[in-house]
Design a protein around this nucleic acid. Structure first.
Length: 201
DNA sequence: ACACTGATTAACT
DNA sequence: GTTAATCAGTGTG
């Protein structure tokens, strides 16, 4: 099976975030399947990471971050957007990897309809955008991504990518950590990336 | 190319 | 009452 096993996610979220670059996000819908190669991710920790939703402990919103690895953590933010994460951590505590951008591979027509734009580079180049393109909202929270019958799961990719890293985007705390990972020179990453200081991992 | 803003909701303080 | 792991649109240089 090409599905990533649960133990893939049972490691520090920084390592999981880095290794998720190049892996494939699959969305199972009743009548179709959507696929995209993950090209940009960010790692979030627990009590060690002031930028994390889990920093102040368990709440109703961040519950998924404390549960079993290999499940989704989908949250709603800014009154408009949903963001997709995979729960990833080593041992107890909390942690997750935010999926910031994917390169669309299958189901482009559906994604264009969802997004209301046709330009392929603008379909999934941001955490809110890819959730809209993949029709992901709160109902997909805590889905098991290690199950091929799940509405969302992850499989291995067909090639390797050179990975760069930078500070995380859109946060005000934890800026000392370079926990954003992205496929180097890939045009499908979010636009903010052009500005960020980066270095090869 | 860049900065700034409005939209709109839920969770948290 | 304030904030937020965002986005699209507008205005300026």
């Amino acid at each position: 099976m090409r599905i990533l096993p649960r133990n893939f996610y049972a490691r520090p979220s920084t390592l999981v975030a880095k290794e998720l670059i190049g892996k494939v996000l699959v969305r199972n819908l009743p009548q179709r399947k959507l696929e995209g190669i993950m090209v940009e991710t960010e790692a979030y920790g627990g009590l060690d990471d002031p930028a994390s939703h889990a920093f102040r402990g368990l709440t109703n919103r961040n519950r998924a971050m404390f549960k079993e690895v290999g499940h989704t953590y989908v949250y709603f933010t800014y009154g408009f957007h949903h963001c997709l994460n995979f729960v990833a951590k080593r041992g107890e505590g909390a942690g997750a990897v935010l999926i910031r951008a994917v390169q669309p591979v299958e189901g482009l027509d559906f994604m264009r309809k969802q997004r209301g734009v046709s330009e392929i580079l603008s379909l999934c180049n941001g955490p809110g955008k890819l959730c809209q393109a993949f029709a992901i909202d709160g109902k997909q929270n805590e889905a098991d991504v290690t199950d091929g019958n799940s509405s969302i799961f992850v499989v291995r990719g067909s090639r390797r990518y050179a990975v760069s890293k930078s500070v995380r985007i859109g946060i005000k705390k934890g800026l000392d950590k370079k926990w954003r990972y992205y496929a180097r020179d890939n045009r499908f990453v979010s636009k903010f990336s052009l500005k960020s200081v980066s270095s090869v991992v």
